[in-house]
Computed example of a mutant assay.
Amino acid sequence: MSKSMYFPCPHCKAPSFTRSVLHESNLRSELRLQCSDAECGHTFEVQTEVLYTIRQSAIPDPGVCIRSVTPMERVNA
């Protein structure tokens, strides 16, 4: 099952779609997005980053170090 991340256009609030992705690391990516409204036509970049682990992976990569948080820490974040 594949789900796309929804990111609205900051100007017209229409959905945007991904044009390209640059993976800077295992934890950070830069995405170039384009507004789906042809009249707006805004193209922009966003960054995504893994902040912390909620549930540990069953097949962890030993080269990846992600901070784990408790449910209480998530509420206070």
Rank of each mutant, 00 (worst) to 15 (best):
R28D: 03
H42L: 15
S57M: 05
V69F: 05
M5F: 14
T70Y: 06
Q56E: 13
K3T: 12
I59Q: 15
K13I: 05
T53G: 08
S16I: 06
H23Q: 12
C65W: 08
L27K: 07
S25M: 07
T70E: 02
S57P: 10
R74G: 08
T18R: 05
L31Q: 07
E49P: 01
A58K: 12
E39P: 06
R28Y: 02
E49W: 03
R55E: 11
S68V: 10
E39L: 15
A77G: 01
R19N: 00
H23C: 10
D61K: 08
N76M: 13
V69K: 11
I66G: 02
K13T: 07
S4K: 14
V69Q: 10
T70G: 01
P8I: 06
S25A: 06
M72D: 15
A58H: 05
T43W: 01
D37K: 07
E30C: 15
P60I: 04
E39N: 15
Q34M: 14
S29P: 04
L31A: 08
K13H: 01
L51Q: 00
E49Q: 13
H42K: 10
E39K: 13
V75P: 00
S16E: 00
R67F: 08
D37C: 07
S4E: 14
F44N: 06
T18K: 10
S25K: 00
D61Q: 06
L22A: 09
S20E: 07
A38H: 09
K13E: 08
P71Q: 06
A14P: 08
P8A: 01
Q47S: 13
Y6R: 12
Q34V: 13
E49H: 10
V64G: 05
L51F: 02
Q47C: 04
F44V: 04
P60S: 01
E30T: 15
C12H: 02
S36D: 06
N26F: 12
V69H: 05
M72P: 03
L27P: 09
S2E: 12
T53R: 05
F7Q: 05
S20K: 02
S4F: 12
C35L: 01
R19Q: 10
S16R: 03
M5V: 15
D37T: 02
V69C: 03
F7I: 15
P71M: 09
H11K: 15
E30P: 08
